[in-house]
Design a protein around this nucleic acid. Structure first.
Lengths: 336, 336
DNA sequence: TTGTAAGCGTTATCAC
DNA sequence: GTGATAACGCTTACAA
C-alpha cells in the first residue's frame, strides 16, 4: 500500500505538502493541489489514520459502553450517539458489559489503550471509581442513564424516581392497594430510584410496601421469576410495576401462565416503552424515555468537550419522560 | 502520560524488555517481570495501542457496517459479532448506512483509513464494487444477510427465497388467493429474493401475482403506505406478506385504520420475527432468522481469516430459518 | 535472557 | 508557499 512518501515522490513535492493538501491546512497553490490529487488517485493512496493519530494524539473515535445493545432503549441511545458522532467525523466503538463491573473495567482499560478521544458510559454500578479513572487520564466521559453519587461529570438521564412515582400514582388512582415492584439490580441507580418513586407514592397514600419489592435483573427471565414470586404472596397483589420493558414482558408471561388476564384480573405498568416500530398492538401502560435524544445529547456534550469546551462546568441533563396509558392498566378497580 | 521508556528507565531495563513483559512474548526472567510490573503500577502506565498498531500493522479492531442498528434483527447480529470479537480481544466499530450507498462508501473509506483488521458488512446494494474495493486492499470482509451476484467472498445469510416460499404456501393453504407482497428496496437482494419466493409459490398454484407486488423500504412507514395502496386495489387482497418486521407493523396499523381485523378479516405473515423479549403477546406468523447466530458465525469466519486462514476458499453459510405460526394467519378461509 | 537500532506513516516545528 | 527534520510510542530484526 502506498504511503505519503510515494504520493509526494509522484507529485514531485515533499510529504508535508501532501499532508497539507489532504488536510486542507496551511498554504499551497492550486497547481500543487492538482498534482497531489492526481498522484493520490493514480496510486490509490489511502491516508493512514493510525500514524496520524500517533502524531496528533487524536483518534477521532468515541466509545459507547453500555449494558446490552439488545435492549431497544440502549439501541436507540446508540443510534443517537452514532448519528451525531458520524456527522462530526467520529467513529464509535461499542461495548456490552451485561451489568458486569469486571467487563466494564476490562473494556475501559482497552479503550484507554486505544486512545479513544472520549467515552459515553452507562455505568454498571453506582460507584464513581471507573469514571474517575477515565477522567484522571484526561479523557472526557459522559455518564448516560444512571446517577452516580459523589461524582462530578457530564450526565444525561431521565428522572427515574419521578416517572416511577407517576406510574405508581396511576395504579393507586385506579384503586390498586397491593402493588408489587419488579425492579432491576439493587445497586443500579435506575433500579433503586424507581423503587424510591414507588415508595414515595405508597407512603403518600399511607400504604405499606412491606413485602412487595423485588430486585432482580433487567431481563425477561428475571421479570418472569420475580412475578412468580410476587404472585405467591398473600394477599396477592393486583398490579405490577415493572422497572423496565424486559421485566414487563417476563411478568406478562408469568401472569398468563397463572391464568390471570391483563387488564381484567391484573394491571401492569412499565418503565420504558417499547418502540412503536416494534409493537404489533400497543398494550403496555408505560413511561417512555427519549432514548434517541439521550444518545444525541450525550454525544453532543462529549463533542463539545473535545472541541475546546474542556473546562466548562459539568452539565447534568435530565430529560422529560412521557406517560402512555394503554390497555394493560384497564379501568378502575371495584372497591372491596 | 508515561510511556514505555519511562517504565523501562524506572525498572532499569530496555524498552523492548517492557514490551516483552506486556505482551508476554520472547524470553525474560521472573525477576524482570516483577520489576517491570512494579514500575508499570507505580507509574500508572497504559500501553498505547495506536503506536503498537502503527508498527505491527494490526489494530485489533473490526468494523460492522449495517443498515440500521435500530432493527432488532441487526441488533442481534451486532450482539453476536461483539460477543465473539470481544472474546478474541477485538473491539468493534459500528456504522449505520440506512441503505445509502453514499454513506456506505463514506464509512468504508474511513474504516480503511483507520486500518481496521476486517469488516462485516450488510451491503446497501447487490453490487460487488464496494466489497471488491475492500478486498483489493487486502482486508477480509464477510458479507452478512445479503447476496451479491458475481462476488467471491465469505457470506453468512439465510434463505430468503425459501422462507418466502414457505410463508406464501402457508397463506395459499389457508385458502388465500389474493396475497399482496409488501417488500423492501428493489435492489436489495433480500427484498428481491422474498418476492421471488412468493412468485414461485404463486406460480405453482397457477395464480397470477399481477398487481400485487410492492417495493418500498424496510420501515414501518413504508409498510403502512404500501398496505394502504394494496388495500385500494380491486379485488382487495385477503392477506399480506410483509418482507420484514417493520413493514409488518406498519401494515398492521394500515389494516387497523381500514377497520379490518386480523385474523378475522385479513391475514398477515412476516419475514423476520420479533424477539420474544420484546413481544407482549406473540401475534405475527413469521419466519425467524437466527440473527445472533448469524453475527456470531460471521465474526468467527472473519477472525479465522485473520488468524492465518487467509487463503482458504471462501465460505457461504446459509443458516436455517424457522416458521412460527401464530394468530395473525387465523383459520382456513371459507372457499367462496 | 537482554539489549541496540531502525522504522512504522504521519505531522509539528522551524527554516527557507 | 514549500520543504527538511525530528518526533509520536511502539515493535521488528538483529546482536550480544
Amino acid at each position: 500500500m502506498p504511503n505519503i512518501h510515494d504520493v509526494a515522490r509522484r507529485a514531485g513535492v515533499a510529504p508535508i505538502t501532501v499532508s497539507r493538501v489532504i488536510n486542507n491546512s496551511g498554504y499551497f497553490s492550486e497547481e500543487i493541489r492538482q498534482r497531489v490529487e492526481t498522484a493520490i488517485k493514480e496510486l490509490g493512496y489511502v491516508p493512514n489514520t493510525v500514524a496520524r493519530s500517533l502524531r496528533s494524539k487524536k483518534t477521532q473515535t468515541l466509545a459507547l459502553v453500555l449494558t446490552d445493545i439488545t435492549n431497544p432503549f440502549f439501541t436507540n441511545i446508540a443510534r443517537g450517539v452514532e448519528d451525531i458522532a458520524s456527522d462530526a467525523g467520529f467513529m464509535v466503538i461499542y461495548c456490552n458489559t451485561d451489568e458486569s463491573e469486571v467487563e466494564e473495567e476490562k473494556y475501559v482499560q482497552m479503550l484507554l489503550q486505544k486512545q479513544v478521544d472520549g467515552m459515553l458510559l452507562v455505568p454498571a454500578r453506582s460507584e464513581p471509581s471507573i469514571i474517575s479513572k477515565i477522567q484522571a487520564r484526561g479523557k472526557p466521559v459522559v455518564v448516560i442513564d444512571r446517577r452516580i453519587e459523589g461524582l462530578e461529570s457530564d450526565v444525561v438521564r431521565c428522572d427515574s424516581e419521578g416517572g416511577a412515582y407517576q406510574l405508581t400514582q396511576l395504579l393507586l388512582g385506579l384503586g390498586h392497594r397491593h402493588i408489587s415492584v419488579l425492579s432491576g439490580p439493587r445497586y443500579v441507580s435506575t433500579a433503586a430510584d424507581r423503587v424510591a418513586g414507588y415508595q414515595r407514592a405508597m407512603a403518600e397514600a399511607s400504604l405499606s410496601d412491606g413485602e412487595c419489592i423485588y430486585f432482580g435483573s433487567y431481563h425477561q427471565k428475571s421479570g418472569y421469576e420475580m412475578a412468580k414470586q410476587a404472585l405467591a404472596v398473600t394477599p396477592r397483589p393486583t398490579a405490577f410495576f415493572a422497572a423496565n420493558n424486559f421485566i414487563a414482558i417476563g411478568a406478562l408471561s408469568a401472569l398468563q401462565e397463572a391464568g390471570l388476564h391483563v387488564p381484567e384480573d391484573f394491571s401492569v405498568v412499565a418503565f420504558d416503552d417499547l418502540p412503536p416500530s416494534l409493537t404489533t398492538f400497543p398494550f403496555l401502560t408505560a413511561i417512555a424515555q427519549p432514548a434517541y435524544e439521550m444518545g444525541k445529547r450525550a454525544a453532543e456534550l462529549l463533542l463539545a468537550r473535545l472541541q475546546g469546551k474542556a473546562n466548562q462546568p459539568y452539565q447534568v441533563v435530565v430529560l422529560p419522560t412521557e406517560l402512555f396509558i394503554r390497555q394493560s392498566t384497564g379501568r378502575r378497580l371495584d372497591r372491596k
